[in-house]
Structure formats: C-alpha cells, structure tokens
Amino acid sequence: MRLGLVIDMDTCVGCHACAVACKQWNTSGTTGALTDYRPYGEDPSGVWFNRVRHYEVGDYPNNKTVNIPMSCMHCQHADCVNVCPTGASYKRPEDGIVLVDQDKCMGCNYCAWACPYGARELDREDGVMKKCTLCVDRIYDEQLPPEERQPACVITCPAHARFFGDFDDDNSEVSRLVRERGGVKQMPELGYKPVNTYLPPRITRPIPIDDVRANRVVSSVKDWVNKMVAR
C-alpha cells in the first residue's frame, strides 16, 4: 500500500478548515499535543501539521488565486528518514506512512532541514519533532464507522477538495483522479517522489465580465451623479 492524499487546487477555497480539523484531531492524538506558544499573546504561534498558503498565479488580468494546503507528502524517497541519526523517523513498509517515534527523537532539527515541503515542525515545549501522521490513529480504527476511517482533514473539507486513498491501487479514487485530472507533484526535480498529488485548476471558459454593464452615456452620467452625491 502507498497511502496518501490528493488535493484539488481547483476546488480548494483556502478556508483553512483542514488545518484546523487536523490540529483539533491530532493535538489529542498519538503524537499530540500540538503545542501553542503564546496562544492569547500578540504573536500566537505553534505546531501545525497542515498549513494552507495562498498564491496568485499569472499576471493581471489573466491571474488566478490558488490555495495550496500542504502537509507531509509521505515521500517514497523520504530523505527525512535517511538523515535521522537516532532512528526516530521511520517510514512504515506496509503503507508508506512516515512517522516520528517521539521516545527516540533528540530534537536536532536535521529531518526538518532535509524536508523540502516544510512538513516537519519542532515542538519547542516537548523538544521533539512532530509531523502529519496521515491520521494513523484514525484510518485503522475499527471502532469508527468505515466512512470516518479517513484523515481528519479529508473528512472536514467543505469544498470536497481532499481525497485519501491507496496510490498503489489503480482503481482507487485517488489513482483515478490523478489519472483523469493530470495530477502533479511539487518539486519533482529533487527526486523525493512525494506521494501526495495535486490536481491543477481545470481549464474552463473565462467568465465574461465585459457585458455586465455597457459603457453608455446614461450610465456614465449616473456614475458621475453617484460620485457627486457620495461626496
């Protein structure tokens, strides 16, 4: 098995619900707590397994906002595991999930240096490295109904932009989406072979905006009057 996520950059609205749901589930999960520093202070900070960033792609007027949620890619060539001197970081052979054994970690930050995706964050309170577990304490939990055996971020996404599944299975939903939508990987040139795959925005007909208001004499006068009245 090669478990991972598919994230649809077309439908993601950048609401950060996945990041918050992740924090909520995992702070009381197996690798919790996700410590917050100065939570009610001027500059609240803390550990997150999932972060959403927002980008502008293209130049005005042919530009577009794209939201990119990022968590651990559970890379096939996970250098974070190779560089770890203590053996705290490991990649599970059975499903490819990359985890940190917090009892072994010495907090040297070396794995975070080796990760190009910023997936690992040191918990300064606990002194150990923390990262996305792909909700390993949830996806195998037989106490939960089958539809809930998915990572918290996937279940919570209101835009249905996140999918979880086995990339080794050609018939899984994630494999089908990657195939049909032309899934892409971040920084493939580094050779980490990330499992998580991103679906590019769909190519659609632009929404016409020039016919919303015709540029006529009457509307010009109206605009001028409105401006004067407003003053």
């Binding site: 900070s45 980008y55 975070a112 910023g118 964050e121």
Partner: peptide
Amino acid sequence: NTATTFNRATVRLLDTGHTAGTFL
C-alpha cells in the same frame, strides 16, 4: 514555479496563512 507546480506563469505569494512566525 516548480514548488507550486505552476510552471507556465508568474507565481506570487499572496498570504502565508499565519500572522506570526512559525518554526519554518
């Protein structure tokens, strides 16, 4: 461009999604 997968256009950061510094 290779980091965000958009290799055919200019990419600019709009917002990092956090108000204060992070570990990163």
